[in-house]
């Protein structure tokens, strides 16, 4: 399964970005092979609206089975839920730490968005 992390950086020691829709990059980590690729979210950072929805589509298309990030709003959550992507919220400072917590089973799958939408 592929797990997506939000980050401003491009490697496992980079800080985890707490925001989902307007993060700079997605690091897509393959749990089977330990390989990863980085997908830019740059075009979405200044979207007037719907950044979370766009970001959700991007990671669904990248084959994500899970998302590890700080916060996920209601619209993005609705897309991810419909696509069967599991969401895990964490305050881990780096991707490596978040990955370690995931592998240790210390991250709980979110049942709902953990922040309010910007319009509602």
């Amino acid at each position: 399964m592929k797990i997506v992390f939000t980050t401003q950086g491009d490697n496992l020691s980079a800080p985890l970005d707490p925001s989902f829709g307007r993060t700079r990059n997605f690091l897509v980590f393959d749990l089977q092979s330990d390989a990863f690729e980085v997908i830019s979210n740059h075009q979405n950072q200044n979207a007037a609206q719907g950044a979370g929805i766009q970001a959700a589509q991007t990671i669904v298309k990248a084959g994500a089975g899970g998302l590890v990030t700080g916060h996920c709003g209601p619209k993005a959550f609705r897309v991810l839920e419909a696509a069967g992507v599991k969401v895990f919220n964490t305050d881990a400072p780096t991707i490596a730490e978040a990955l370690a917590r995931y592998r240790a089973g210390n991250l709980v799958q979110a049942a709902a968005a953990n922040v309010e939408g910007h319009w509602a």
């Binding site: 979207a47 609206q49 719907g50 929805i53 766009q54 589509q57 669904v60 897309v79 419909a82 696509a83």
Partner: peptide, 23 residues
């Protein structure tokens, strides 16, 4: 439809798009 919408009010992932009427 998803590609046409400039307001991200439609979201898709290889099935019927979701609609976000508030956008």
């Amino acid at each position: 439809c998803v590609e046409f919408c400039q307001f991200n009010a439609l979201a898709s992932f290889c099935r019927t798009p979701l609609v976000f009427p508030e956008l």
